[in-house]
Write a protein that binds this DNA or RNA. Structure first.
Length: 462
RNA sequence: UCCCCGAUAGCUCAAUUGGUAGAGCGAGCGGCUGUUAACCGCUAGGUUCAUGGUUCGAGUCCAUGUCGGGGAGCCA
């Protein structure tokens, strides 16, 4: 008999149904009247199921070892629960103890643990309320991402994880090599990448954008959703060395179309998660961040503010706020400035656009004013920048001169330049950090708790 | 990488101007109970992050390192 997910039992099962469930014990409470309550969680939903095991039930002889963290499966009959706190409960007809968890050494206790501690036992943290809920939110959000784009006829493009293009200066890259570095270090001072696996220097991707543009300019609307790597020495609650990024790329989209899509996209994913993870979201709102549901409703029910960079500078300069860093046209906005705009001034998501060309990469489309480019950043309360995007420069001559201005050789990006040489098209796209979206939706403070296996400087355990 | 803070029992934290290292929770045992973060009693549990220094004496003061947290920069 195949086990039934606890989620299904709690939702659909009727008194009299016989089912088999399996999972990990959260707590056990014994009654001297000859039976025990076993709180069983299988990760299929936030709630555990209460199992009543009578002393004469086959398997009851092992009840002493049915401790927090142990794994059991139970055959039983669904009954209305006379106690408070659950609609139905399961009365066991057979209990099988698959794996014990010695209470002296099992690290998870029936109490709150700090997230710092749980990070040290990342192999066990999926068994906690919080990480079970995060897992389900991440899953529902992933599905919603694909849903959103598939419904609009976008193609899911798998861009390469290993790349040899020294891409766009989006950050330090992790090298990929098969050279025997320890051996080489003994005999020579320089590496000869011609001898390496790919015959040239290779690295993990920092972005799938340029490759996505290839498909946008060939088969049309597309998106990527995959891991991205940045070897930056960033030690913050919003950065990971390995994170998942969603990057749509669309031909015939101008910057305003790009903004429309970004706004609808964020709202769609949030709405789906609110629908499908209602119980988990209640938990986050109760235990993690008491404002998270309100924040999310604010995002889904209001249009995002659209504000040119130049006007943002004006607002900030006239705000009367004391900022640690001065606001000056031509400089990128600091975190404190972005947070002021989205958290205090507008109190809702803000899309900033038309940034100075000097602070943005080569591929962004130049405006006629000669000073700004068609870039956009989506800022949300608490997290700050969650999306960065732009209309891409589609004019061959402008792109080439911009590349030189940025110190890049157009020849090295010959295939990217070719897209403008042959059948060029106005197009746009953006990148969204998936973990930052998870952070926004769950209210979790630290992005390291929003990915199953976080990689940050000095830490890649598990 | 820079600034600030921290590291003491399995976990979360105390420990007075430097003077015998404690509590709550958890665990084990017992009691009670259709219980549900149960409750009551007892018991066990420590190289105070590492190395060096100051001192009669260091958890406490100093130096360096490691790791962790918060903030900044870089960005998504």
């Amino acid at each position: 008999m195949v086990r039934t997910h606890v989620a299904k039992v709690l939702k659909d099962a009727q008194p009299g149904d016989t089912v088999k469930v399996g999972g990990w014990v959260r707590t056990r409470r014994d009654s001297k009247q000859g039976f025990s309550f076993v709180e069983l969680n299988d990760g299929s939903c936030f709630s555990s199921i209460q199992v009543v095991v009578d002393a004469d039930t086959p398997g009851y002889d092992s009840i002493k070892d049915v401790t927090t963290g142990s794994c059991v499966s139970i055959n039983g009959e669904v009954k209305d629960s006379p106690g408070k706190g659950q609609r139905v409960e399961l009365h066991a007809t057979e209990l099988v103890l698959h794996g014990t968890a010695d209470g002296d050494t099992y690290p998870l206790q029936k109490k709150r643990h700090s997230f710092e501690f749980l990070r040290e036992i990342a192999h066990l943290r999926p068994r906690t309320n919080t990480f079970g809920a995060i897992t389900r939110v991440r899953n529902a959000a992933s599905a919603a991402v694909h849903e959103f784009f598939q419904d609009r006829g976008f193609y899911y493009i798998q861009t390469p994880v290993i790349t040899t293009s020294d891409c766009e200066g989006a950050g330090q890259m992790f090298s990929v090599t098969t050279l025997n570095l320890e051996r080489i270090a003994e005999v020579q001072t320089k590496l000869d990448y011609a001898q390496d696996f790919f015959g040239k220097r290779a690295a993990l991707t920092v972005s799938g954008q340029l490759e996505a543009e290839i498909f946008a300019c060939g088969t049309g609307d597309c998106y990527t959703f995959g891991p991205t790597f940045r070897a930056e020495n960033s030690n913050t609650t919003r950065h990971l060395a390995e994170f998942w990024m969603i990057e749509p790329e669309m031909p015939f989209y101008e910057l305003t179309d790009n903004m429309d899509l970004a706004e609808k996209f964020v709202q769609h994913v949030i709405n789906r998660v609110l629908e499908r993870c209602a119980e988990d979201m209640e938990f986050f709102n109760l235990r993690i961040d008491k404002t998270v549901l309100e924040t999310l409703r604010n995002i889904t029910e209001n249009e995002f503010i659209r504000l040119p960079y130049t006007e943002a500078v004006d607002i900030l300069q006239k705000s009367g706020q004391k900022f640690e860093y001065p606001v000056e046209w031509g400089h990128d906005l600091q975190s404190e400035h972005e947070r002021f705009l989205t958290e205090q001034h507008f109190k809702q998501p803000v899309i900033l656009f038309d940034y100075p060309r000097t602070i943005k990469p080569f591929y962004m489309r130049c405006n006629d004013d000669g000073k700004t480019v068609r870039a956009m950043d989506v800022l949300v309360p608490r997290i700050g920048e969650i999306i960065g995007g732009s209309q891409r420069e589609e004019r061959l001559d402008v792109l080439e001169s911009r590349m030189k201005e940025c110190g890049l050789e157009p020849e090295e990006y010959w295939w990217y330049v070719d897209l403008r040489r042959y059948g060029t098209v106005p197009h746009s796209g953006f990148g969204l950090g998936f973990e930052r979206l998870i952070q926004l939706m769950t209210g979790m403070q630290n992005i390291r708790d929003c990915i199953p296996f976080p990689r940050v400087p000095k830490s890649a355990d598990f």
